[in-house]
């Protein structure tokens, strides 16, 4: 039986760490079938008609939230948005109470972003609805890793054996954790690179090579993923200045020349041009940054579709 034919059994998508390689493949194969919906005159299928999806965003997000929202609309689901600025989420209600109130409204799926790692897991245990982690602190962001993998597979035809360099603030990035889990499970060779102040200890334990020099990471790389430098962190003196950071770890066209001839340049967004990536690289011929955004919708449609048929037990 191929990965696509094996039946999906999970109610929730909480992280990549717990997924089997065939489950990752199944999501990517399903996403490939959903891609064409974006190119139709009527960009909508009736598949999730009558299902309710709640988007619960405790942290601000434009890209991820709108990507989920478009995916939900293209599947004909009814979606409901809660964000911190405009609801009781900012009035001191506990997460458990929010969850129980949601449960009473009987949603089918909940998409959650939260500053605390494990918040989606807590909801998943308490709710009959399926829970999709849209980013929990610096822990995981599984749909981002899946859309990155989808983009790489679309361009390269495979993941196994590819040399992938992930560069930037490794410590504070949920994107990097999900990506490291996914890429190593699928047989890619991953190198992470960043300033020592932004590199967690024992990163090697996840099966990756750790370097502190951009050129070393770029050497022969098939894929380069640049991570956003959170400028707000500069106040914590993790790096001396933006200029200095760009000189050390910014991706310029000259430095990119060390990578493979057909290298892919990726960025999960939002980008800081001139900080982690030069404008001419971001807009250059190797960049697939906007493809990542387009693929995000297809991948999220696939996840919503697969999870929507698996129902949990209503908690006592």
């Amino acid at each position: 039986m191929t990965a696509a034919e094996r039946p999906w059994t999970r109610k929730d998508l909480l992280g990549i760490a717990e997924l089997e390689p065939w489950e990752i493949e199944k999501v990517l194969d399903t996403a490939a079938a959903f891609e064409e919906v974006a190119h139709r005159p009527i960009k909508k299928v009736p598949t999730l008609r009558g299902k309710t999806v709640v988007n619960l965003f405790f942290e601000s997000s434009t890209r991820t939230r709108s990507s989920f929202e478009i995916a939900e609309k293209r599947l004909s689901a009814d979606s409901l948005n809660f964000s911190t600025s405009s609801s009781s989420l900012s009035k001191g209600e506990s997460l458990v109470d929010t969850a129980l109130n949601l449960q009473a409204m009987a949603p089918d799926l909940i998409v959650i972003r939260h500053a605390y790692p494990g918040a989606p897991h807590m909801l998943a245990r308490r709710l009959a609805a399926g829970v999709i982690n849209a980013g929990d602190g610096a822990h995981e962001h599984p749909t981002q890793a899946l859309l990155d993998a989808f983009t790489i597979r679309q361009r390269k035809g495979r993941l196994a054996g590819l040399r992938v360099a992930i560069v930037g603030d490794i410590e504070h990035s949920r994107v990097v954790r999900s990506n490291v889990h996914l890429l190593t499970k699928m047989g890619a060779e991953v190198t992470v690179a960043g300033l020592r102040t932004m590199m967690p200890v024992a990163m090697e334990a996840l099966g990756v090579r750790v370097v502190h020099d951009l050129d070393e990471a770029l050497d022969g790389a098939d894929v380069v993923m640049m991570l956003r430098i959170q400028l707000e962190r500069q106040s914590r003196m993790l790096f001396p200045s933006i200029k200095e950071y760009f000189r050390l770890f910014g991706l310029s066209a000259e430095r990119l020349a060390r990578a493979a001839e057909d290298v892919l340049v990726m960025h999960p967004g939002p980008m800081n041009r001139g900080v982690e990536i030069a404008s001419d690289v971001a807009d250059g011929p190797f960049s697939v940054i906007l493809e990542q955004v387009a693929n995000g919708v297809a991948v999220r449609m696939a996840v919503l579709y697969l999870l929507s048929s698996i129902h949990g037990e209503a908690p006592a």
């Binding site: 039946p7 399903t30 079938a33 009736p46 579709y305 697969l306 048929s309 698996i310």
Partner: peptide, 19 residues
């Protein structure tokens, strides 16, 4: 994606795409 029994069967059937 157009089946009328999607809400009654689980797991979801495999989607292979239209062209």
């Amino acid at each position: 994606l157009y089946r009328d029994d999607l809400s009654t069967i689980a797991p979801q059937p495999v989607v292979k795409g239209t062209s």
